[in-house]
Design a protein around this nucleic acid. Structure first.
Lengths: 171, 171
DNA sequence: TCATGATTGTTACTTTATAACATAGCTCTC
DNA sequence: GAGAGCTATGTTATAAAGTAACAATCATGA
C-alpha cells in the first residue's frame, strides 16, 4: 500500500493476476509506482538500478507479504539463470541501502518500502493470517521512544518495531 | 541487569571471573538470581527444569550479551557431550515459553529475561559497541502503540521493539 | 583505448533452524 | 513393582539464511 490508506478494490480486469502471488493482494499500481520511484531515487543518487536489482525489487513488490531469501531465489532464477544466494543478498543489500525495501527482522524477510520519503520512521504490522505487512508511520511512537532512550542514556542508530497480530481485514 | 537500574561495581574478589564471558560484565549475582527464579517458576507451573535447560539458561546468563545458537552449542558441548542443534533449540523453546529468556529478533540470538514478572512489555536496547542488551519496561510506549493499532484496526499478538545504538557506558 | 571501479559469476562454507523417528526416563495407576 | 503413557533427550538428516573470497565482466571517464 503506497500510502498505507484505503485499499481500493478495482474490477478484476484491472488486475495483473499472473504476477500477483498473494491471494489477497489487490493490484493497485503500487508495484509500478515503486519501480518508477526506485528509478528516480537511483538516478538522483547516481547509483545503478541494474536489471538484477530491478528484478529483485519487482519480485518483492509482487505481494504485500514479506519475501524470504529462499523464495526470492526460486523466483529470480527463471529470469536470471545464474542467480545464486550471493546474487540475491547483494541486490537486497543495495535496495536496503537505498531505503527501497525493509528487512522484517522477526521473519528474516524483506518487503518493499512504501514510504514517500526514504528512511523515515516506521512501524511494521505483520498479519499472522494473511501474512501481509503494513508499514505505518510512527512519529508519536518515536517521541515515546526518545524519552525512554534519554532515560537510558542510549543513542539510537537503528530500530526495528514489529507487531505480529491480526489485521483488520482478517479479523 | 536484574532491575535495569544502576550497575554496582563490586571489588574484583567478588567476581566469578572464570564463568563470566563478557569483558564488560560485572558479576552482580544476576545469574544466580535468574536460575533461582527459574526454578521457582518451573515448580509453580509444574514443568521440569531439567539439567540441560538449566545449563542453557546458565550459559545465556554468563553475560548480558545476546547468545547466538552456534556459541551456545559450543559452550554446552563440554557439559552435555551429546548436545546437537536440536538439544539447544528445544531448551531455548522451553525457556522462551516460560518467559525466562527473550529472542532478539534483529540478532537471531537470545538473552536472559530480567523482568520481575514474566511476559511483560519490554524494549530491548542493543549496544553496537559492547554488545550488551538492556531490557527496559515500556508501558508508555505501549500506549502509543495501542493508539496506532486501533487506527489500523490491528490486534496485537506479539511484538519486537529493538533499538540498536550506543549505550551510556560506551558513549 | 585503456584504466578504474562497480557489478556480477562462482565456489565454498558458516550459521540458523527444523523435521522425523528412536530411545530413555519420569510419574501415575493398578 | 509392572507397565502404560507422557515428557525429554538422542540421533540423523536436511532446509533455510547468510557470508567470504576471488575471478570475470561491464560501464564510464580520462
Amino acid at each position: 500500500m503506497t500510502g498505507g490508506g484505503l485499499r481500493v478494490m478495482p474490477p478484476k480486469a484491472e488486475m495483473t493476476g499472473s504476477e500477483c502471488v498473494s491471494p489477497t493482494h489487490v493490484h493497485c499500481g503500487c508495484r509500478e509506482k515503486a519501480i518508477h520511484s526506485a528509478e528516480q531515487v537511483c538516478n538522483q543518487c547516481g547509483v545503478r538500478f541494474t536489471p538484477i536489482r530491478r528484478e529483485v525489487l519487482k519480485i518483492i513488490w509482487e505481494s504485500h507479504r514479506a519475501v524470504k531469501a529462499h523464495d526470492l531465489l526460486d523466483r529470480i532464477k527463471p529470469k536470471v539463470g545464474t542467480a545464486k544466494p550471493a546474487t540475491d543478498y547483494r541486490a537486497l543489500d543495495f535496495l536496503l541501502e537505498q531505503g527501497l525495501i525493509h528487512r522484517v527482522e522477526s521473519l528474516n524477510a524483506f518487503i518493499g518500502c512504501s514510504c514517500s520519503e526514504r528512511q523515515h520512521e516506521q512501524l511494521l504490522l505483520i498479519c499472522i493470517r494473511c501474512h501481509e505487512v503494513e508499514e505505518r508511520p510512527c512519529e508519536r511512537l518515536m517521541e515515546a521512544i526518545a524519552k525512554e532512550l534519554e532515560q537510558a542514556s542510549f543513542t539510537m542508530q537503528r530500530k526495528a518495531i514489529e507487531i505480529h497480530g491480526i489485521c483488520g481485514r482478517c479479523a
